[in-house]
């Protein structure tokens, strides 16, 4: 049954460009996929490690900016991808060392501050980042002969990366290291007493999260072929967190559902109402007050309780 559902989901996902019709929807599907990668990355920390980061848009932006800089200086796409990910990993390591000086609220505050530094650099260091005007790149790559220039090509490439991310998350969650990460979330003191290196486990979780954040940032840049300080704001970090929390933390399906929800809301809502920020804020408040465990576990709980089952 589970295998069947998985196969069906794969078929549906792979054929999206063939049945949704307009390229507008193919593009929205692509957005959902790379934001889902971002949300899965944030979930490694917020969900499994119990460390809430409000600075992840900073890492996301670092990946996008690094890629844009490498590309505009005339390098090929392989160098762009490798360089951007290397820079993001290094930044994630620095973020982790600093943010792990605090736990709980301290961690949150430090990540806010780190995110704002990145924003400040993106906005003010004009000779590096072109300030508010952002950086425009030209052209998407064509890995293995698949041109990403068309919405369809881009969708399939993003889908491949997305599936890789999901698979890696599934493996991570079931692994001994995944269990260690969750252990440090639930009972750090006991974990230390059991012989685990709590700090190192959190550090590695942060770097893993940083890696997939970087991948998502790279996809974002290729999708928009443009990056500006807008991608690095506190709102952007909050959106990523909202995806995770609305869907359900520490689940695989939760962040994906949340990403779909936020992207659709953002695109649909913006067509009817211009007050996206108000809606975003209201959703935040409503979810926290009424469904603190998130949509996927929340609905699962309702289904379990329903007498029909």
């Amino acid at each position: 049954m589970k295998r069947f559902a998985l196969a069906a989901a794969l078929v549906v996902l792979a054929t999206v460009p063939l049945w949704v019709g307009s390229t507008y929807y193919v593009n929205i599907a692509s957005q959902i996929l790379f934001y889902a990668v971002f949300a899965l990355a944030v979930n490694v920390l917020a969900g499994y490690a119990g460390l809430v980061s409000l600075g992840h848009a900073g890492l996301f932006g670092i990946a996008a900016y690094a890629a844009a800089k490498i590309m505009t200086s005339g390098h090929g796409h392989l160098a762009v991808a490798a360089g951007a990910l290397a820079v993001t990993l290094a930044a994630a390591a620095v973020f982790a060392v600093l943010a792990l000086r605090g736990t709980g609220l301290g961690f949150v505050m430090i990540t806010v501050a780190l995110g704002q530094i990145v924003w400040g650099v993106a906005y003010r260091w004009i000779s590096l980042t072109n300030g508010d005007n952002g950086i425009t790149i030209s052209g998407r790559p064509s890995p293995f002969g698949l041109s990403l220039a068309s919405p369809r090509g881009f969708y399939w490439a993003t889908l491949a990366v997305f599936l890789l991310a999901v698979a890696s998350m599934a493996v991570f969650v079931a692994s001994p290291f995944g269990a260690s990460v969750r252990g440090t979330r639930d009972q750090p003191r006991r974990m230390n007493a059991l012989g685990y290196h709590v700090w190192m486990i959190r550090f590695l979780a942060f770097v893993l999260s940083g890696f997939w954040t970087g991948v998502a940032g790279l996809l974002y840049l290729y999708y928009n072929q443009f990056v500006s300080p807008q991608a690095v704001t506190l709102t952007a970090s909050a959106e990523a967190l909202l995806m995770v929390i609305s869907g359900g933390t520490a689940t695989l399906l939760g962040p994906i559902t949340g990403a779909a929800l936020v992207v659709v809301m953002k695109n649909v809502a913006s067509a009817y109402i211009e007050r996206w920020n108000f809606v975003l804020g209201a959703i935040f408040v409503a979810i926290v007050v009424f469904m603190p465990e998130g949509l996927v576990p929340g609905v699962a709980r309702l289904v379990r309780r329903s007498p029909l089952r």
């Binding site: 079931a174 692994s175 269990a179 974990m191 059991l194 012989g195």
Partner: peptide, 20 residues
């Protein structure tokens, strides 16, 4: 209890195999 045993095992760093 598995977490307790894992704490002393080098396998605790392994991100690929299945714990169960």
């Amino acid at each position: 209890v598995t977490l307790s045993l894992l704490g002393l095992s080098p396998r605790r760093w392994n991100p690929i195999v299945r714990l169960d």
